[in-house]
Amino acid sequence: MLAGRLNVSTGKFAVEEVDEPHAGPGQVRIAVRAAGVCLSDVHLIQGMLKPLHLDGDSVTLGHETAGVIDEVGPGVTGLTVGERVLLQAGELAGPTVLTRGVDYDGGWAQFAVATAGTVVPIPDTLSFEQACFIPDAVSTPWAAITTTAAVQPARAVGVWGVGGLGAHAVQLLRVIGAAPIIAVDPLPGARERALQFGADLALDPGDPEFGSLVAEATGGVGLAHAFDFAGVGAVRSQAARTLSKGGRLTLVGLTDQPLTIPDGTRFSYLEQEIRGHYGSGPEHVLELLSLVALNRVEFSRSVSGTVPLAQAADAVRQLDEKQGNPIRLILVP
């Protein structure tokens, strides 16, 4: 079968022929129908992110995957051949979080094997293209908003970086009643998209009036919550300066760069907080599927295009270069 493989030692990525996997005890195999291309995948290929628990040098990328069960391993109950499913983006192995497509083979392939407990049935009304990226592109901001940050309705919130995760954050903040929602991005297209997704205000971080515009929008109080979806040091410094008394900055974007507080005394005096966030739990995906079933959210606008699996490298390039300002490009085997 075809699979998009990364050698983490050499940094070489290629779509190549590999042996088909088969479902072992407690596993199922799915015929992949759609797999999302995430900025984390780009960062893995570029070497900015490294797998922590990979056994060997090579891995099939792809942590956002949906398809049809075509093989059920021994001991699996409650799942049957022919079911439409998505795969959770990772799983626990004891106290360790393992990420699909990072620490073990993922969904950039014609077939993918998954532990039965990470397989989630989806309704016929939800397309594979929209279902595949609910784990991560939607569930990560949902978990950050509802669990790590614990955002309350009618609280002022800022979202830095309106890409794949940030755009969904704006949409989901609107669902829970955060207000006002201020989106921050240097790209005019991203700011326009933020307004379409429900932001009350979209600002250029380089605007010389940035601070006063945030103050005006929040009645001089500042932001109760700020989210960094970009993983950029300058973003974190700017976001910290906009927080209200007791305000909370939640770091979702990943970076290996140090974290700097622009004014430590002010930060302490105002009793502000910084929290790290990574991924989501199985419950967050299930919550989102419930919201989809009740027509509270839908993600058709998030599918920026479909690309054949064989052209995965081109999809990576498009995302890296922000060609067409994509939210999610979808690989189709």
Rank of each mutant, 00 (worst) to 15 (best):
82 G>A: 09
56 G>W: 05
271 E>D: 12
181 I>W: 13
221 V>T: 15
68 V>G: 08
315 A>E: 00
225 H>T: 12
106 G>M: 02
329 L>Q: 05
264 G>Q: 13
291 L>M: 05
305 G>M: 08
30 I>W: 01
303 V>Q: 00
242 T>E: 12
41 D>A: 07
304 S>W: 05
298 E>K: 13
114 A>N: 01
116 A>K: 15
153 P>W: 08
288 L>S: 02
251 L>D: 00
308 P>Y: 00
125 T>Q: 04
293 A>F: 07
233 G>S: 14
104 Y>P: 10
298 E>W: 12
244 S>T: 14
1 M>C: 09
328 R>V: 08
188 P>M: 12
52 L>V: 09
85 V>F: 09
186 P>A: 02
127 S>H: 06
189 G>L: 13
93 A>T: 14
93 A>G: 12
129 E>K: 09
307 V>N: 00
157 V>K: 04
73 G>W: 08
333 P>H: 09
150 A>S: 11
124 D>M: 10
269 Y>A: 11
11 G>A: 10
229 F>N: 03
13 F>Y: 15
331 L>Y: 01
271 E>Y: 03
213 L>W: 12
110 Q>N: 08
311 Q>W: 06
285 V>Y: 04
266 R>C: 06
249 L>N: 00
40 S>H: 08
164 G>M: 09
266 R>G: 08
40 S>W: 03
202 A>P: 11
255 T>A: 11
270 L>P: 09
112 A>P: 04
198 G>V: 15
303 V>T: 05
253 G>Y: 01
255 T>W: 02
207 D>E: 11
270 L>V: 03
209 E>K: 15
24 G>C: 06
76 V>C: 05
63 H>T: 10
58 S>D: 08
214 V>K: 10
320 D>K: 05
297 V>S: 02
25 P>A: 10
36 G>N: 03
183 A>W: 10
289 L>A: 08
52 L>K: 12
161 G>A: 11
184 V>W: 13
208 P>C: 11
265 T>P: 00
83 E>A: 14
76 V>A: 03
139 S>V: 04
294 L>S: 09
246 G>K: 07
324 G>P: 07
257 Q>D: 14
45 I>V: 15
119 V>Y: 06
294 L>P: 00
17 E>K: 07
152 Q>V: 14
225 H>Q: 13
173 L>D: 13
133 F>P: 01
312 A>F: 07
100 R>V: 08
53 H>F: 15
37 V>A: 05
122 I>E: 01
52 L>R: 10
333 P>R: 06
16 E>F: 14
188 P>G: 11
175 V>R: 10
120 V>A: 01
179 A>V: 09
53 H>K: 13
28 V>M: 02
14 A>C: 10
263 D>N: 15
190 A>Y: 13
24 G>Y: 02
215 A>W: 04
268 S>R: 06
39 L>R: 06
234 A>W: 03
23 A>Q: 07
77 T>Y: 06
74 P>M: 11
253 G>F: 03
307 V>K: 01
240 A>W: 06
298 E>F: 12
121 P>L: 00
260 T>P: 07
193 R>I: 13
167 A>I: 11
265 T>G: 01
262 P>T: 03
173 L>Q: 13
169 A>L: 05
